[in-house]
Design a protein around this nucleic acid. Sequence first.
DNA 1: TATTGTTATACTCTATAACTATA
DNA 2: TATAGTTATAGAGTATAACAATA
Lengths: 156, 156
Amino acid sequence: MDHDRAHDPLVRDVIRMTFELTGRLRAHMDGVAASLDLTPMQARALFVSHQPVPMGLLAESLHCDASNVTGIVDRLEERGLMERVVDPDDRRRKNLVLTAAGRRGSEQLKDRLRADNPILSLDGPELEVLHGLLLQVLSADVPPEMPRRTHPSPQI
Amino acid sequence: MDHDRAHDPLVRDVIRMTFELTGRLRAHMDGVAASLDLTPMQARALFVSHQPVPMGLLAESLHCDASNVTGIVDRLEERGLMERVVDPDDRRRKNLVLTAAGRRGSEQLKDRLRADNPILSLDGPELEVLHGLLLQVLSADVPPEMPRRTHPSPQI
DNA sequence: TATTGTTATACTCTATAACTATA
DNA sequence: TATAGTTATAGAGTATAACAATA
């Protein structure tokens, strides 16, 4: 018999706190992005593009529709940080490759992200514990699909 | 003598994983919002407005500029979920108060957010540990200011 | 036929600057 | 003078639908 965890005060508290921390981490990331004159989405795209990645996969990583990635990559390409390279094995597919400037930018982004990160208020052993918990959540969880508002059930 | 943690592989790993989890949690939240026909920011505004809160404080909670809150609250008010109430003690200030429908919506939002949350792959004791870590990070960390791009130092 | 990426569209979010009204 | 909130603006993000090229 499984106790109903939805009414567990601990669950409520942890969800409220993850909401708060998620907001702060995002603000921290956006601040770092701004310091490099990147928009939040441009920075996230740079962050996850270590090796060549097709547009569709980037859309998944960014949790947004594929049609949005066109514009985001357009602006990164105009700025000389990324290039679209047609995949020779499947000419429909375009792989995104960082330029030298893109790699430098990505490194700076990550350096600055590490420099002042809120989670660094934890010491080594605590980070180890957090690492274990994150590993468990990430491997157990199936990444959610992109949010859709097609058939909402409002009731409010 | 403090070891330089920026080069600690554990720190890098944990930051990469928090980036991933943060993205998934946001996608989860946005999906729940969409199921109630709310935009992401409308849902976040509803989430943090349990008791009357002035516009400026809501802007801080949402990590965005105060000017944005006007439009977000406009749409929630048009929909009958919130009301602006002028503060009698300081007539410049407007407190945001949930309507009955707003309270129902907020409850549904939180119910659905708990129902399928990725962090629920953790069991009770693990949640306790996470709770402790979150408490420490949140109390040690000073919430970052809103990201500004006024004086960037690009170098890329 | 199905898939990858683009375009067109309409709306929301976003920060900045200038503004109103209160203090 | 300073603060709370609004308006105007321009740009970026957002999902949907329709489309082209390729498989």
